[in-house]
């Protein structure tokens, strides 16, 4: 592959170096301290969930509340994993989010390319239709879409869960705007070399679009991973549920077990949090750039 030179070139880069250096002042220290306090407060629910998950079930409802487990144990995790549901949901979430992300990238890139770099009959009308589609939130379609799915026989199938999530006209729009800004000279040169549209897309446009593709991919993946409403409707079979749907609907036969609930919550939260810690900057950009719809 022609090495894409497109690194994340932050437009703020110019200002970064010359921002006023924080001097150690009383005011600065106060800002730091309040920031840290707020951050810690914001983490309390997560920390409390982790601590609860490490307690034996009997300790979870102790009054008054005690933070640290008296006898820390991984029993809750063992019980949750022994049920096997959560592993299956994690697999389902991974498969479905990946399929949604890849398909979204493929169909939206193709469509955006067509709108940006080609002229075909009906182009304007179609683009206007897709723009109008941005106005239709998926939430208002749940009932007719479910009805349609029963007709097509897609309820309780992977495709039934995944395909409606691929229809994201806003992504076509974002990608088109980006492609529009790629100078014509590049495609002209390629065309002179005898390249057709597929070649131009593959060898000219895509290599220059790394950042936007990453942004769309990350945003789509995160959104699909955490999507609740549609998977909740399209998958009633526990074997097909994703993490949020499974955790939100399947009950333990033994009633509410707080340590196990929290263990399941921690395990369900882990994948994206790990991805976030590893790729913090990319996730932040992906979410802010593509998320502004």
């Amino acid at each position: 592959m022609s090495a894409p030179t497109a690194t994340l070139r932050p437009s703020r880069g110019a200002t970064e170096g010359s921002r006023p250096r924080p001097r150690i002042t009383a005011g600065g220290a106060m800002v730091t301290v309040s920031a840290l306090v707020l951050a810690v407060v914001w983490l309390i629910p997560l920390v409390w969930a982790v601590l609860t998950s490490l307690k034996p079930e009997g300790e979870t409802t102790a009054v008054p509340i005690r933070w640290l487990p008296l006898e820390p144990t991984l029993e809750a995790y063992r019980l949750v994993l022994a049920r096997g549901d959560l592993q299956r949901w994690l697999v389902n979430s991974t498969v479905i989010s990946t399929v949604v992300t890849v398909l979204t990238l493929m169909v939206c890139v193709l469509a955006a390319y067509a709108f940006s770099k080609t002229r075909f009959p009906g182009r304007r009308a179609l683009f206007a239709l897709f723009l109008a589609g941005i106005l239709v939130p998926p939430q208002v379609l749940i009932v007719p879409l479910f009805d349609e799915m029963t007709f097509l026989g897609l309820v309780d199938t992977y495709w039934g869960v995944a395909l409606p999530q691929v229809v994201a006209p806003v992504m076509v729009f974002i990608l088109k705007r980006f492609f529009d800004a790629i100078p014509r000279d590049y495609e002209e040169a390629a065309r002179l070399d005898g390249a057709g549209h597929p070649r131009i897309l593959w060898s000219v446009v895509l290599p220059m679009s790394g950042p936007i593709l990453a942004a769309v991919a990350i945003f789509t993946f995160v959104q699909s991973w955490n999507n609740f409403l549609w998977p909740f409707i399209a998958a009633t079979d526990p074997a097909l549920m994703t993490v949020p749907v499974g955790l939100g609907s399947v009950q333990g036969a033994y009633g509410i077990q707080y340590a196990q609930n929290m263990a399941a919550a921690v395990l369900g939260a882990l994948p994206l949090l790990v991805v976030f810690l590893l790729f913090q900057r990319q996730v932040v950009r992906g979410v802010t750039d593509a998320g502004l719809k």
Partner: peptide, 25 residues
Amino acid sequence: WFLRFSFFAPFLLPVAVVTLIWTWL
């Protein structure tokens, strides 16, 4: 990075995880 993590991390949680935790809280 720590501040960004603690302020933004909850946004990445699946909704069922959020509600499990808060129903418990």
